[in-house]
Simulated assay, not measured.
Amino acid sequence: MHFCSLPIFGLLSLLLPLTKALAPTHLVYEFPNGTWIENLAVRSCGSVLLTIITSPDLYLINPLSHSPKPVHLHHFDSALWLVGITETTPDTFHLVAANGTFATPAPAPGSNRIYTVAFPPNSDTPRISLAATLPEAQLLNGLTTLDSTTILAADSQKGVVWAINIITSRSRIVLNDPLMAPGPLLPTLGINGLKLRGSTLYFTNSAQALLAKIEINPDGTAAGKAIVVARSPTGANFDDFALDWRGDAFLATGPGNSIEEVGSDGEPQVIIAGIVNSTEIAEPTSAQFGRTAADREVLYVTTGGGLAAPVDGDEIVGGQLVAVDTDGLWRV
């Protein structure tokens, strides 16, 4: 795969944190204007699943092909958007569908559903089925896998985490911490992205502009209080994120139009790709590392194209899948 380096523009000096070099990026694919890609999951074979928030559609794209093109996998007739997605067992994924819209981000009461997307061996055509409904949830967003039968779901509006058994369809609130709550400026976007590393659950809160972590028990309940790992120095609304093998977090900064790396202990805190007034990474929403020998150091990033916060005040592009080459990235 070919990557092209980008220069550091003078306006980057207005953004903190800083880095002396930006990672090379490559546009894998850009959807038509008006498309917001909300989340992604990378299959072990290297192809990427994309959920769309501006329509209830699931796409598959192979970023390692010569000319990547998205393949439409499924339209969810009972929903208006798709958000979080997580792999539960090899090549079996679960995602959130609900009756929310980009203009009115609080879904209709009772519309949150979890669907199973299961790929048979050597197939790109998944079997899709309903796994659970959550009538009491408000705005399910980020997902992560607790174990082979249970996923954890961030409820951005309630400011809690649900545990959902994908076999029995039963669900319950397992985490409720002040660092998960929404705020007055973003009343529907508190806790957002979730990632589990061992017994430590990392999460972002868009309203509070922070990355935090909390120790949890095997059933998903709290083993302590949540603590702040890092706060956004610019006030950018942290969205979803990826964790690398070191435990560093790579956060989508939303209107910051960049990817910010935060060490496992909160340091360093540096921008490694993108720039606030560029459409290179236009309003990033989520990130995940590649899984093949060819792209393990590549961070795949989805974007909203500036729909919620136009780039440089007035520029909107289509939702993007961007590859960020972190191999050899210089870290301060």
Rank of each mutant, 00 (worst) to 15 (best):
I53C: 08
S258T: 15
S148A: 12
L49A: 05
H72P: 01
Q269T: 06
P182A: 07
K225L: 09
F3A: 09
L196Q: 07
I281D: 02
L18A: 04
Q320K: 10
E267N: 04
L27I: 03
L186Q: 15
G183A: 15
A226L: 04
P284D: 13
P63H: 09
D155Q: 15
S258R: 06
A131K: 02
P126H: 13
N192G: 06
I61N: 11
G110Y: 14
L243N: 07
G313P: 06
D57K: 14
L12A: 02
P105L: 00
N33K: 15
D248P: 00
I227C: 03
L50N: 13
V229D: 04
W330M: 06
L307W: 12
V96Q: 07
A273N: 06
I275N: 03
L40K: 03
S278Q: 10
D244G: 00
N257E: 13
I191T: 14
S278T: 04
G254W: 09
T221F: 02
F3E: 10
R43L: 10
I37G: 06
P268W: 10
E136M: 12
I227W: 00
V174P: 03
G318L: 13
Q208T: 11
V117W: 02
A222P: 00
L210Y: 08
I53V: 11
R231P: 01
L12K: 02
G224H: 14
K158D: 02
L27G: 09
K195D: 06
L40S: 06
T149V: 09
P107N: 01
P109I: 05
G328M: 09
R197P: 06
G266A: 10
R197C: 12
A41L: 01
S78Q: 07
E38M: 10
G313V: 08
L64D: 11
D295Y: 11
P56V: 06
N165H: 09
A323G: 05
V174Y: 06
